[in-house]
């Protein structure tokens, strides 16, 4: 386990380095750098050249990368082209909303998906299984932004029960209902379907059959033998869930006008504010990589037979 964990952590380290290099290269090599887009478009060529020099964009690529990476190690992500705020300040001001949203979602997601998956898998083919299966299948097929708009149309515009945006309303738990519902819809569906499949396999596995023969009662049987193995395919899918969650956060923040990191990212992309895009993508992708690391380690601990990493 320790050797595996060490190798897996090393891989994550390599991934983080690759991520930083790729982010920098992709944004630095893009056509049309910040100097001619971030400022007024009527500026003459000599003005742009001066600006480039001020922003340090005329230095060779390797030098720019070294100074950027050096800053990164010191926790300095550079300064935004717009408003000249440090990127870390932008992240700090938008972090709260996104983190709360993610935390609320995660605390509901895990027990809900586990419960639904077990309910489906333990009574396969029963009515509960058929109903939940149909609903989750339908939810996986609806794009989250369509679902978000549909929920807004029904619950905030027609019925007026819940706020449709975060702007200009007092804060309260009601704000979270619709965004969290959208974030949960696809992730819970995927996750619970994986757990259903895992439960089914674990229920028919030799060790469960043997334990049942030995007279282990149903509740301990499910809790001690079925559950740990049933979770494995679900946890392995956590990487994909991370992708869906981050995509979902982007969509949800855009639809509900939540002042979080995703809103900041989209704004930065649209105004070509390269340092902010670099900082925010790095941070969000690093979260996804760490989630993946935790998922693989948990998987390995739960079911050491499964080769998560070759």
């Amino acid at each position: 386990m320790l050797r595996y964990a060490a190798r897996r952590v090393l891989l994550t380290g390599a991934q983080l380095v690759a991520l930083a290099v790729a982010t920098f290269l992709l944004t630095a090599l893009l056509p049309g750098d910040a100097a001619d887009t971030a400022f007024n478009e009527q500026a003459g060529p000599e003005q742009i050249a001066r600006l480039r020099h001020e922003m340090g964009l005329d230095r060779p690529l390797a030098v720019r990368f070294a100074s950027w990476a050096g800053g990164l190690l010191r926790g300095d992500l550079g300064t935004s082209y717009l408003g000249h705020r440090p990127v870390t300040a932008i992240i700090a001001s938008s972090f709260g909303a996104t983190a709360t949203l993610a935390l609320v979602t995660a605390t509901i997601l895990l027990p809900l998906a586990l419960g639904l998956g077990l309910a489906m898998g333990l009574r396969e083919g029963g009515r509960t299984d058929r109903v939940i299966s149909a609903v989750t299948l339908a939810l996986t097929a609806i794009p989250d932004f369509v679902l978000a708009l549909a929920l807004v149309a029904v619950f905030s515009l027609r019925l007026g029960w819940l706020p449709s945006a975060w702007v200009g309303v007092e804060s309260g738990p009601a704000l979270y209902v619709l965004p969290v519902a959208v974030l949960l819809a696809r992730t819970v569906s995927h996750f619970s379907r994986q757990i259903r499949a895992g439960t089914r396999t674990a229920l028919h596995a030799g060790y469960t059959v043997q334990a049942r023969r030995l007279g282990v009662p149903r509740v301990p049987l499910v809790l001690r033998h079925v559950l740990p193995n049933a979770v494995v395919p679900g946890v392995q899918e956590l990487a994909r869930t991370g992708d869906q969650l981050i995509g979902g956060v982007l969509v949800v923040e855009a639809v509900f006008a939540i002042p979080g990191m995703a809103t900041a990212l989209i704004g930065a992309v649209q105004s070509r504010d390269v340092p902010t895009v670099q900082g925010l993508t790095l941070l969000l992708a690093a979260v996804a990589l760490l989630l993946n690391l935790v998922a693989d380690l948990v998987c390995r601990r739960l079911s050491p037979r499964t080769e998560v990493l070759r």
Partner: peptide, 15 residues
Amino acid sequence: LPIPSLLVISVVGVG
């Protein structure tokens, strides 16, 4: 493998 798709599109979308 585990890099979120919309982030890649964001980075590419800048340019």
